[in-house]
Computed example of a mutant assay.
Amino acid sequence: MKNNIRFIRKEMKISQEELAHKCDVTRQTVNAIENNKYDPTLALAFKLSISLNTKVDNLFIFGGEEE
């Protein structure tokens, strides 16, 4: 699933490490999500949306064709 997390995080001028700390995950987890190598759980998706001050719908790109 593609996402806008890197774009939103950079707009907010926070590092992967800072976002990871806010969401209680490792920086590597944030990196894997941003690079579409890991789909977060629903709970983590909500933590990300709260930490990035946006709706879950704004973080992830739903629909379209699978790669």
Rank of each mutant, 00 (worst) to 15 (best):
M1I: 06
M1Q: 11
K2W: 03
K2C: 10
N3E: 10
N3Y: 10
N4Q: 11
N4V: 05
N4E: 12
R6T: 09
F7G: 05
F7Y: 07
F7W: 03
I8D: 10
I8Q: 06
I8K: 11
I8A: 09
R9S: 04
R9L: 06
R9G: 01
R9D: 02
K10N: 09
K10H: 10
K10L: 12
K10I: 10
K10W: 04
K10G: 00
M12V: 02
M12C: 05
I14P: 01
I14M: 11
I14K: 00
S15L: 02
S15T: 15
S15F: 00
S15M: 00
Q16F: 05
Q16V: 04
Q16T: 06
Q16I: 06
E17K: 07
E18C: 03
L19Y: 05
A20R: 05
A20E: 03
H21K: 15
H21E: 13
H21F: 08
H21C: 01
H21G: 01
K22P: 05
K22V: 02
C23H: 01
C23K: 01
C23Q: 00
D24H: 15
D24T: 04
V25H: 03
R27E: 08
Q28A: 11
Q28K: 08
Q28I: 03
V30I: 15
A32Q: 12
I33L: 08
E34A: 11
E34M: 08
N35H: 15
N35W: 06
N36Q: 11
N36C: 09
N36I: 00
N36P: 01
N36Y: 10
N36W: 09
K37G: 02
K37F: 10
D39Q: 09
P40K: 09
P40E: 12
P40W: 15
P40I: 10
T41D: 08
L42R: 04
L42H: 02
L42G: 08
A43C: 05
A43I: 07
A43Q: 13
L44I: 12
L44Q: 10
A45W: 06
A45D: 08
A45G: 15
A45C: 13
A45V: 08
F46L: 06
K47M: 14
K47V: 07
K47L: 08
I50F: 05
I50V: 09
I50G: 01
I50N: 07
S51V: 12
L52R: 01
L52G: 02
N53Q: 14
T54S: 15
K55T: 07
V56H: 02
D57H: 12
D57T: 11
D57N: 14
N58M: 12
N58Q: 12
N58A: 13
N58P: 03
N58R: 13
L59Y: 12
L59A: 11
F60Y: 09
F62L: 14
F62D: 11
G63D: 14
G63K: 13
G64E: 14
G64W: 14
E65F: 03
E66R: 11
E67G: 03
